[in-house]
């Protein structure tokens, strides 16, 4: 089992920033991200989200998002794909960082999820 992490944000800068941050904690994990609309405005793009998942090298994909329409687009994508995606309703930065740290040391999914449960905010 190979983990991958996917970051989704309304803001291209937040998505890229969270990626940069958690990459430090997980240099060997595939981390991809989608931020903003097609035109890099604030918003969410299903096409970008699709690309972030398809580009990811992991086979168990842990997905983190920020606001409403990122979540809705993510859920719409999950209905359309066969990829193994796990969506977490947790604080974006802290959740992604926690998952990255634990994925890097190959923790079992159950224990990653146990740690993430404490960060559930939505």
């Amino acid at each position: 089992m190979k983990y991958g992490i996917v970051i989704l944000s309304h803001s291209p800068k937040i998505a890229a920033g969270v990626h940069d941050l958690i990459e430090q904690a997980a240099p060997s994990i595939s981390i991809t991200f989608a931020g903003g609309t097609e035109d890099n405005e604030i918003g969410s793009s299903l096409e970008k989200i699709q690309k972030a998942f398809e580009d990811n090298q992991g086979d168990q994909l842990l997905a983190f998002y920020d606001l409403g329409s990122s979540k809705m687009n993510l859920e719409m994508y999950m209905e359309m794909t066969d990829l193994n995606i796990h969506k977490y309703d947790v604080a974006l930065v802290e959740g992604a960082y926690t998952a990255a740290t634990l994925a890097e040391i190959e923790s079992p999914l159950a224990s990653i999820e146990q740690s993430l449960a404490k960060l559930k905010i939505k």
């Binding site: 097609e38 969410s44 793009s45 299903l46 096409e47 409403g68 809705m72 859920e75 719409m76």
Partner: peptide, 15 residues
């Protein structure tokens, strides 16, 4: 709608 709307109304009307 899904491709172009961008806001929350995209996935909602799109779905």
């Amino acid at each position: 709608i899904i491709q172009k709307v961008g806001g929350a109304s995209g996935p909602l009307y799109g779905t």
